[in-house]
Design a protein around this nucleic acid. Structure first.
Lengths: 224, 224, 224, 224
DNA sequence: GATGAATGAGGCTTCATTCAT
DNA sequence: GATGAATGAAGCCTCATTCAT
């Protein structure tokens, strides 16, 4: 958003040309996300990543200090995409209920798009040393915060019951993640849109106040 | 429905004394669960497991074919504990609603007890070769089935809305698992019992019919 | 031949009952010869030998000091069979030429009978430490001596040319061994009897004197 | 007939620079032949080979897939030297009898040069998996073919008896190999040239026709 | 800046041998 | 005498990382 490309991480590169660093890292991370997602972090070698990225193994170490660093970058790139997609889905919407559903729908869809990578995040975050892991957790809390904020707005508007916002946000987030985590089973039960519909019905029942229900009716009426 | 004494795994040991095999495997698995849970599968060496189990590294291979086999055994032991605890919690209960809450409460508590191991299951199942992974998945489906059965009984009794049983069961299971998966954050927000209470309130709202609510009131009345 | 069963080797057993020692060792060696012959010495484990011999692994070490000791015993048992068969084939024969052919024919046939084991001897003698290997070599020299003696008798009788007896004996022995060593190829070219016939024709040409030829004619005449 | 520059093996190296691959493999194989010859395949560790070759253990695996692959390369390098030396010895010779003796003399001398390695070939070919072993056998058949061809030419020219060419070739080949296989004993009986002389006398008796003898006389006359 | 050959530490696994029962 | 569970040393192989070109 600002003039200079936002630096996602503080990993130090040995190369000075900032634009090149960005490009190279993107190249490396793209390869890494794909490979890590499919084979897991430990089964993927740096040589694999290099090959898929179309660079040499040595080059990677000019943009990264560690293999773990590649993992960090990969995980951050996934979380970043969450942080990017949700606000995008909310753009132009002002009705709290509309925003709430839009945010959650967006979340489910990004998860679906990055399904393997979401699983990767669950599998591999613990493979990071505590300090790098913290970075991941902070980013996750941020994303959750967006969902929580939408929820809070609905509660403040009297559209939803006064539940524990943070906990409920976790339910919502978990619902989205589960589509990835349990996809091996869920895909036999329904497709994504059906999953979203059933889930939203569930959350509506759990959360909406009578006022919320009426409001909801009006939204849906408009939508038709 | 009960845990029929089905043989959990068909991994062949090189030792013939069946009782010894049981004991040794338990020893190995206990060590493995602890180590894998904390350091992850790949960061744990067989030597680590052997040391913690108080045996030699070579011995492990008399009871297991692979390092991966140790993982399989570890994961199965966790899933087995689920399958054991839930029916135990239902023993003596006949009221569908009581059984429903009891089952879910039991689930949350086993997860809490085996918190690290539950995380392990999420992290490491994919590290198994497809055929061993299938074993894990089947066991998981079975456990889910117990939750789903309780839910179905409530629906059949008119106490709960006629939701998609399998999907709703996943929501419940996921809720329990999340306590482990997101414990790093949730523990800052509440303790287990509070987590259960809030979650159950949520599910009650989402699932109970008016008849269910009245019934629920009576149960709680009795409970006091 | 003597009263006490001849002790083939000086390997010390931990068991005192001499008859038992003989029996157990025979059991072990029989299993070892078969396994070593097929899979080679290094690919065969003591457990394999124990299993095939129908005893426990621990028992083997009461009759043998080493795995190498098992190999020594196995090789000796093969060489012993040579030393047994050749004299047996000569029993009752007094004509030098008849004895010569009979000895060589017998040799070829024992080799054929113990084909895999003969290959084993070639493969594995070098796996023994020098002192144990000497034992093998001495036994081999003894066997060669029997062939050489037959040859010398023919020469002394003027039936064969005065060639270097030791070298020629090696040619004869090698001819027999080759049937085992190169069986993978030779079996495509002819069967054992054909191999012997062609080889004997060859050696006859190489060795017989004119007197030898006349004598040979008479033998064959008698044979018909 | 000549050593066409056929690629000896199709083992894939992880290194692309073809010249380097040649050089490294030669380095590794040279070390391996020496060590395997003296200590045997199983007693030699990859670390041993690496040390003797002056490289790291890891490097070997960039040029070879297996320890067995090192053995294969080692054996092939020996057999290749046979295939190289024999044609070289025949260069410029056109007389069938001269060619016959030259080929066999060359064979005996290569065997002498690579004495330990020849023993290695006998000991270790069976240590290879069947498919790699086939490669060895094919190469051996080819070498034998060169000897057999010389023999056939002599027969066709009426200089030698019409024996079974393949079997007789084996006798000749075996004679050469025996110098290596039984060197521990033969060296006490004679030196290489004496061995060759005696052997050739033997084969001359066995194979030459009257015409062959006259021809032989002329050659030797020339030679003096 | 990029390459990729080279290194070497480290892990899994096997198996000869021992020893308590 | 026999058993077979247990040990632990040792070897093969992988792969993150470095460094000369």
């Amino acid at each position: 958003m600002e003039g200079s490309p936002r630096v996602v991480h503080d990993v130090k590169a040995q190369v000075s040309d900032e634009a090149l660093v960005q490009r190279r890292r993107a190249q490396i991370v793209a390869a890494a996300v794909e490979l890590f997602s499919h084979q897991g972090f430990y089964r993927t070698t740096i040589q694999d990543v290099a090959r898929k990225a179309g660079v040499s193994a040595g080059l990677i170490y000019q943009y990264v200090t560690d293999k773990e660093d590649v993992l960090l970058l990969a995980l951050l790139s996934v979380l970043e995409s969450y942080k990017r997609e949700i606000p995008a889905a909310l753009a132009g919407l002002s009705d709290p209920l509309e925003r709430f559903w839009a945010a959650n729908r967006a979340y489910c869809r990004v998860v679906d798009q990055w399904r393997e990578a979401t699983v990767l995040a669950y599998r591999s975050t613990k493979s990071l040393p505590e300090d790098r892991r913290r970075l991941i957790k902070e980013t996750e809390i941020e994303t959750n915060g967006m969902i929580a904020a939408c929820l809070r707005d609905c509660i403040d508007a009297g559209l939803m019951r006064d539940v524990n916002v943070d906990l409920a946000a976790y339910q919502l987030v978990t619902f989205a993640h589960s589509w990835a985590l349990k996809h091996w089973r869920l895909k036999e039960l329904c497709n994504l849109e059906e999953y979203i519909r059933q889930g939203f019905d569930f959350f509506a029942q759990a959360l909406l106040t009578p006022k919320g229900w009426r409001h909801q009716g009006r939204i849906e009426g408009k939508a038709e």
